[in-house]
């Protein structure tokens, strides 16, 4: 991947949302999710969360461990069924119409792996086929992604022998193979070093510029502080703050991290 990707990358405009530029690509409305832990106890992971991500927008989902970030993103990725409330991707309800919602979505998490014995080219090709791509279109898309993600040098090397950064880029390529208008990323920079994180986030900024709606969660606030247009802070399964960086840090300025602590502090106090 280039150190600082530019708009020269051959990214297409997502036509799925053409003519509906102001309609949210990702919507979460009064989402509630309870699940049963391995000890049998019911965990109220998400109590009531609502937010939206517009096209061309990168939104950071912030929260401490156990705040409900991963659960929210898994519901969006159709991996979990909401207990109540709604989640939509390009208007498709993830519960009622999961297959169509998946077509509009790319999902990468920190725990998402890649098949060790397949090469990046094979991985991208197999997922392209799963998304209905075939023939020349599929081959062209794979070549394009290999180039965009700077995987040319290892395109035919088994993924088990790739570095963490390269594997994460393969994951991202897998999520983008069908060129979805929405990307949901759960701590995508977790396994990456500083350089890898910077490259990945820079690439995501490029995607955002090309009109994709991106929702990502991370603990490394400083990395996304100036990359995201808006932030949603959740704590104890509820949204405790939402807005631009400027709105969160307030007129006095300061770091996003301080604003984050301020946002979750009342809830922490109540909890204690």
């Amino acid at each position: 991947m280039q150190a600082e990707p530019t708009n020269e990358l051959q990214l297409n405009q997502p036509t799925a949302i053409d003519g509906a530029a102001n309609l949210p690509v990702i919507e979460v409305i009064n989402l509630v999710k309870h699940y049963r832990a391995s000890d049998g106890l019911v965990v109220h992971a998400v109590r009531d969360i609502s937010f939206a991500v517009l096209p061309g927008e990168m939104v950071g989902l912030l929260g401490a461990n156990g705040a409900g970030k991963t659960t929210t993103l898994r519901v969006l990725a159709t991996l979990l069924q909401p207990t109540s409330g709604t989640a939509r991707v390009v208007g498709r309800d993830v519960q009622r119409d999961p297959v169509h919602a998946r077509r509009q979505l790319g999902y990468v998490s920190a725990t998402t792996g890649v098949p060790d014995r397949l090469t990046p080219t094979e991985i991208l090709r197999s997922f392209g086929r799963l998304h209905g791509l075939k023939g020349d279109l599929l081959a062209a898309r794979v070549v394009q992604l290999i180039e965009i993600l700077d995987l040319s040098s290892c395109a035919h090397r088994p993924a088990g022998r790739l570095s963490s950064g390269q594997r994460q880029r393969v994951s991202l390529g897998r999520a983008m193979v069908h060129d979805p208008p929405a990307l949901v990323l759960d701590e995508p920079t977790n396994a990456l070093d500083v350089l890898g994180s910077r490259d990945l986030l820079a690439f995501l900024s490029t995607l955002r510029s090309a009109g994709r709606a991106i929702l990502l969660s991370t603990h490394r606030l400083h990395e996304i502080e100036h990359r995201c247009q808006r932030f949603v802070v959740i704590h104890g399964g509820r949204v405790v703050a939402e807005g631009t960086r400027e709105a969160l840090v307030g007129p006095g300025g300061g770091e996003l991290e301080e604003a984050f602590f301020r946002a979750i502090a009342p809830a922490e106090t109540m909890a204690s």
Binding site: T15, A16, Q104, H131, G132, L137
Partner: peptide, 9 residues
């Protein structure tokens, strides 16, 4: 290419 070009599989 866009996401609509991915057909129903």
């Amino acid at each position: 290419m866009n996401n609509e070009s991915t057909g129903n599989v």
